[in-house]
Design a binder for these strands. Sequence first.
DNA 1: ACTGAAGGCTGCCCGC
DNA 2: GCGGGCAGCCTTCAGT
Lengths: 87, 87, 87, 87
Amino acid sequence: MAGAGHNAPVAAQELKALMERVETLDDERIAIGEQAKSVYAEAKAAGFDVKSMRRLVALRRKDRTKVLEDKAILELYASALGCLDLV
Amino acid sequence: MAGAGHNAPVAAQELKALMERVETLDDERIAIGEQAKSVYAEAKAAGFDVKSMRRLVALRRKDRTKVLEDKAILELYASALGCLDLV
Amino acid sequence: MAGAGHNAPVAAQELKALMERVETLDDERIAIGEQAKSVYAEAKAAGFDVKSMRRLVALRRKDRTKVLEDKAILELYASALGCLDLV
Amino acid sequence: MAGAGHNAPVAAQELKALMERVETLDDERIAIGEQAKSVYAEAKAAGFDVKSMRRLVALRRKDRTKVLEDKAILELYASALGCLDLV
DNA sequence: ACTGAAGGCTGCCCGC
DNA sequence: GCGGGCAGCCTTCAGT
């Protein structure tokens, strides 16, 4: 099914090399995540609401047009259900 | 560490009974999920946006007061960043 | 984009009816989830490891053949990396 | 509730600065994620099973002792249920 | 058949 | 030290 291992030992060397690259990248990614966490800790110490900051970061990363469209639909539906204030 | 298995075979009968109960409940849960999926399919066929419906369902299930508070903070921050229109 | 609202108020009645059906199903789903949680709590009180039980439940729900295949690949790779004992 | 904004405009400048730092870190994190994705694509092209590679990466990052303990419990339970071959 | 998204589950961190 | 809440990963499904 795999198609990979035409030779029994699965090209262990190749696999090892790929895994090492991935693991290195993962280490970097985690290190950066820790830096971000530090910044959020600072923000929290300064009295900001971290959860809201995260939501805003995510929102701003998305495509602006799409966000506005989604928002419009949500408001339309909420209005139909009589709970416009929630959105 | 566990504390459970004071007797070697781990009270296999007890474990089996518990697992069966969980698995039965799981079957029911999945069946209901499929019914919900059908309703969403109907909604989609009628031209509604399923994703927005899901968001609204989730929003309405949450505590109203908390939703309003969170919304207020988000708007405050968005306004500080000059992107109030996104929220 | 939506195609739904050929009439301005978005067929609010239809949307409401659909939402109610979904929310009812959701309530049931949540109730069952709580029952499952109770069973796990019982299990924990009896000394069983809940996390392992969950893993086993998930494993048993899957297609047996596929599980065995996946297991074989994982062992092959682990062996290539010299950490067969982990899997 | 917040404690932060003793001054009405919520210290918009401070918030902006924090958000920018977070967003920069996020950009880096995403870029690295894309590199990892590339490596996995390479691996796939070479015939390896990406899912198994991911599982192995996750497994190797965890604490070795804990992994072995978890494995032992899982095998114990599986054996009690008569499906040791699955784990 | 593959890619991208959406939901559910697991692992992690904070608060109690 | 435990339980709850949050972020990330895996899995599943719709779309192409």
